[in-house]
C-alpha cells in the first residue's frame, strides 16, 4: 500500500453507464485503489461490445454491471462496488450518486448525457462531473483533449459522432476513458483533498 492509494481509499466515484468509457474508467480507478465505485447501467454484454469494453466472451448476455463487478473483484477485491442495474433518470441519479465525490458521465446517447449533466449541475451543485464527448473513430490524437467549465470537465474530441467510418474502437475509447479516470484522480487529490 503506497502513499497515494492510502488517500484514494477515501473516495467514492459514481459512473453512469458502463460501456466503452465506463467499464474502462472503472477498471482503471479500481486498479489504483479508489475506495468505492457506484456503477449504473441497464444493458447486457454483447459480442460487438468486446472491441472496446472491459468484458469477456464468457460474459455475453450477462448484465454489464454484474459482469464488471466480477471483473473488478478479480483485479482488486478491496474496492467496494455498488452495482445498479437500471435505466438512469434524474431521481435515480440524485439518489444513487448522493455520496459520490465525483460523477463520471459515460453513457451512450446524447439526450441521456444532457439529462445527466443538467441534473448534476442543477441539483447536485457540490459534485464534480467528468463527461466523455466525442470518442468515435481512430487517430487524430492531437484533437483529444479535456476542457473545464466550472465543476464540469469534458474529455474527448467534442466532435466525432459514431458512424460507419467512425465506429467506437478500443484505442480512442480507452484513451478517453482513462482521461476521465485521470481527471477524477486530479479532482480528488488536488481539489477535494480529504
Amino acid at each position: 500500500m503506497n502513499f497515494l492509494s492510502e488517500k484514494l481509499k477515501k473516495y467514492c466515484i459514481g459512473i453512469a453507464g458502463v460501456g466503452g468509457l465506463g467499464s474502462n474508467c472503472a477498471v482503471s480507478l479500481a486498479r489504483i485503489g479508489i475506495g468505492k465505485i457506484v456503477i449504473a447501467d441497464y444493458d447486457i454484454v454483447s459480442k460487438s461490445d468486446l472491441n472496446r469494453q472491459y468484458y469477456f466472451l464468457d460474459q455475453i448476455k450477462e448484465k454489464k454491471v454484474l459482469a464488471l463487478k466480477e471483473n473488478i473483484s478479480k483485479i482488486n477485491p478491496d474496492v467496494e462496488i455498488y452495482a445498479y442495474d437500471l435505466k438512469l433518470n434524474s431521481d435515480e441519479i440524485i439518489k444513487i450518486f448522493k455520496d459520490c465525490d465525483v460523477i463520471v458521465e459515460a453513457v451512450d446517447l446524447a439526450e441521456t448525457k444532457q439529462m445527466i449533466i443538467e441534473t448534476v449541475l442543477s441539483q447536485m451543485p457540490d459534485k464534480y462531473i467528468v463527461s466523455g464527448l466525442g470518442i468515435a473513430g481512430y487517430g487524430k490524437n492531437i484533437e483529444i483533449k479535456t476542457r473545464k467549465i466550472d465543476k464540469l470537465y469534458i474529455c474527448g474530441d467534442e466532435k466525432t459522432e459514431i458512424s460507419e467510418i467512425n465506429p467506437p474502437l478500443a484505442p480512442k475509447v480507452g484513451i478517453v476513458a482513462n482521461m476521465q479516470a485521470n481527471q477524477v484522480i486530479e479532482i480528488v487529490l488536488d481539489i477535494l483533498k480529504k
Binding site: 444532457q114 449533466i117 466523455g132 464527448l133 467549465i149
Partner: peptide, 10 residues
Amino acid sequence: VDAIHMISGG
C-alpha cells in the same frame, strides 16, 4: 457562454 454539444457515444 458555453454551448456544449452532446455527442452520442460512450
